[in-house]
Structure formats: C-alpha cells, structure tokens
Design a protein around this nucleic acid. Structure first.
Lengths: 214, 214
DNA sequence: CGCCTAGTTGAATCATGGTTCAGGTTTCAG
DNA sequence: CTGAAACCTGAACCATGATTCAACTAGGCG
C-alpha cells in the first residue's frame, strides 16, 4: 500500500492540514492506510470500525483523526489508491504485447493475477459504488476511456476489426471491462482453483473470434 | 413487485410465523415489500431506514416486524424476488429468437430495457454483495449456469462455435454475463441517452464476430 | 539547552436507528 | 353473532460506533 501523493497545490484542501510533516507522521499514516485496507477488505465498509483500524495499526483512535477527517475520507483515499494500483499493474502487460489482441490476453491474465493477490482491493473498489459513488464512477470511467482509446488506436494500426460507428468504442470498452471484472470476481476472488492462463485463453478466444460459427 | 411464494413445507422456517393468513395481511405485506424496494433503491441498504419504509407503506413500524424478522430479512426477500423478475423478463426474449446468436442480441436489449425501467432493482441486487453475499452469489451463479447450459446446447445445434475445453463454457458464461451487467450499469442505470438497439447491436457484433481482423 | 510544533492518547459524548412490547382493533371461521 | 387469532400501533429502549477534545509526549530548529 502506497501513500497517495499529496498534490503540491492543495494548501486549501481540508486534507492539507492532515498531511504529515514528519517522518514519524508518514510512517503512522501508512500504518493506518494499510490497516484500513485490511479492515475494510475483510469486514466491508459498514462492518469495519475506526477503533479496529486504529488497533490494527497500533495507534490510538485520535491518531486516526489526525490524518483523516472521517471514516468515509479514509475509504475514499483507499479507493483512489487502489484504482491507481490496478492500472499500474495491468497496463504494462498490455503494452508489452506485440499487438492489441495479444495484449488483451496478457491484460486479462495480469488482472486475474492481481485480483487473486489483492482481494481486499477488489472488494473495496466494488463497495465504493455504495459508499462513494463518485469515486466508483471515476475509476470505471477512467479505465473505460483508456480502453476505448486503446482499442481505437489498435484499429488504426489494423490490429482489430472496427467497422463500427463512433460511440461503439465506448460500448466495446465497457463490454470488455465488464467481462474482465466478472471473470475477476468468479475466478479471482471466489475461486483460485482454475489456472489463470486457461481462463485468459478462453476469454481471449471469445473476444478474438466471437461466437459465430465459421 | 410480487409477493414471493411461500414454500408449502416451510412450517419450521422462522418466516412461517410471518406469513400473512388474511387478505388484509397479504395486502400489507405487498405494501411493505414495494416500499422497501423504493427505499433501498433510492437510499441503499445502510441509508435506508425501517421507519421510512413503514412510512412509505403507510403502516406502523411494528407492522413491519409482523412480516419480517429484521432489516436484513426484508432485503433478502427483495433480492430473491428481483433475481426472479430479471430472469422472467429476459429469458423469454432469448428463447423467442430464431437462434442463439440472435437470442443473445435480443437478451441484451431486453436486459437493458428492464434495467432502465427498474433501476432500484439493479442497485439492490448489486448491493446484496455486501449485505447478503450468499444471496448475491446464488443469483449470479444461477444466471451463469443457465447461460453455460444454453450456450453448450446451442453449440450442439451448431449455432455457435465451441472448440473449447470443458470448463470453458463457464468462463464464456461469466464473461458474457459480466459484459451485460456492465453495459446495464453504464447505459441503463447511468444514462438513458443511447438507444438500446444501438448498444445491443454493438455488443452483439463484438460477441458474434470478435475483434480479430478478418 | 529551551521551546514550539507535530503527533499521540483514549475516555466521554452523542446521534442514529433497529428492535421490542404492551396494549388496541379487525377479521373471519364456526 | 361471537370470540380467538391476526393484525396494527408507535413510544421507549438500547447497542453501536463515529467523532471530539483536553492533556500529554517526541522531535528538531535556533
């Protein structure tokens, strides 16, 4: 878990007064953030408690409020941080592939892999839909937009077919994203049994060739 | 909103004592169920309150507890009922199509249509992941299993391609289901602007032909 | 070495809202 | 008609847990 970078211009933001100014403070903040991720990951937002987060971190309740204005604030910080983490993990795998279609497969595998090792993260992002809807929307809109652009560029290079009208890149992006998310839920969070590569291969076959008989 | 059928053999179940025995009772139960759907649909589970549900239904708080043991109980009843509703709406559209691929398109359109007119439903099913996870799993597992069987049968009839290994029908089912759910969120719940048919067409093209250039 | 700021502490406060319950009122089978 | 079972009522009870705050300690700069 990484401490979110504090914007240099945030002198007016309410969190400015909360930014640690000392090495000790930074250490404590990270401790709290990690503990919060565990707590919310295991118990969920509403069942999770500040007292327990503080306990996990080995600090007093009051220290929590030195760094966050509220329970929701720490949750939002978590969502933003994890949103970044997922993309930082998956995007390089997509870019490293020789073409977009191969990248799609690598991306699914990388995503599944990440979900399996970060189940708390998955739950927190999903639950944000009901706790901090704007953060949830931002996450998925960002991912979808990146996807749509990437697909359109791949089409420009002739790597994928694309006899579609304008808004269809968004539809495709959301469709593929939903596919990945659900596969992540079923074969990442709910079960570890199936090998990641097999799932990625099956998903890739679907995305690549479609269902129409040749 | 339909009152869930009470199992005939449920004499031992805790809800047995809660089953209405009178026409008046049935009326009140339906009133409460509808009000709960509104309340949870608008405010979500944790923000929603029993007092407000009772108020919407025009009954006293105590009457709520005549029919449900707890807040969670009514929420579960809602999830089960809505799970049924979605399938009852969508499945006929799929079956009415001349073949599975056409059915897929009809199914997406029907689903989007349903989501747009039942946004509360969408939210309640989704939130059940964090309130009644077993009910959430049951819903999606049931849908996915139905999907997997349906796809495999279509393959048997030669309507879709299927050079895949055994478990891959599940992967395909979850992939397509996730696709639909996310399209439902983005183009059903979040926005009404795009015509349903255009989205269904784009999604269908993706599922049918894939992304690989011909 | 002072001294000011950043950081720490955790008991006490307080709002919220689910749940209970001790009577009334209505329904309907016999 | 009639009485027991069903229903209805809503104020009061209570557990929970987020948030506050006044006193205390550690760190580092002049």
């Amino acid at each position: 878990m990484t401490v979110p970078p504090q914007p240099a211009t945030a002198s007016k933001s309410p969190s400015a007064s909360k930014t640690p100014r000392t090495a000790r403070g930074q250490r404590t903040l990270r401790l709290i953030l990690d503990s919060a991720a565990e707590e919310f990951g295991e118990r969920g937002y509403h069942e999770g408690s500040i007292a327990r987060i503080a306990q996990r971190a080995g600090v007093a309740i009051g220290s929590f409020y030195t760094y966050f204005d509220s329970k929701e604030a720490v949750f939002r910080a978590l969502v933003a941080d994890m949103s970044r983490q997922v993309r930082e993990h998956v995007v390089p795998h997509i870019l490293a592939a020789p073409d977009r279609l191969a990248g799609e497969r690598a991306g699914i595998a990388a995503y599944l892999d990440f979900v399996r090792t970060h189940k708390a993260l998955y739950r927190i992002i999903d639950e944000s839909a009901f706790v901090a809807e704007d953060a949830y929307r931002r996450h998925y809109i960002d991912v979808a937009d990146g996807y749509a652009v990437s697909l359109e560029q791949a089409f420009g290079r002739g790597e994928i077919r694309g006899e579609v009208s304008a808004g269809d890149w968004q539809v495709r992006a959301w469709a593929i994203m939903g596919m990945n998310v659900f596969l992540g839920l079923r074969f990442g969070v709910w079960s570890d049994a199936e090998p990641v590569d097999a799932i990625a291969a099956a998903a890739h076959a679907l995305i690549s060739d479609g269902l129409k008989p040749r």
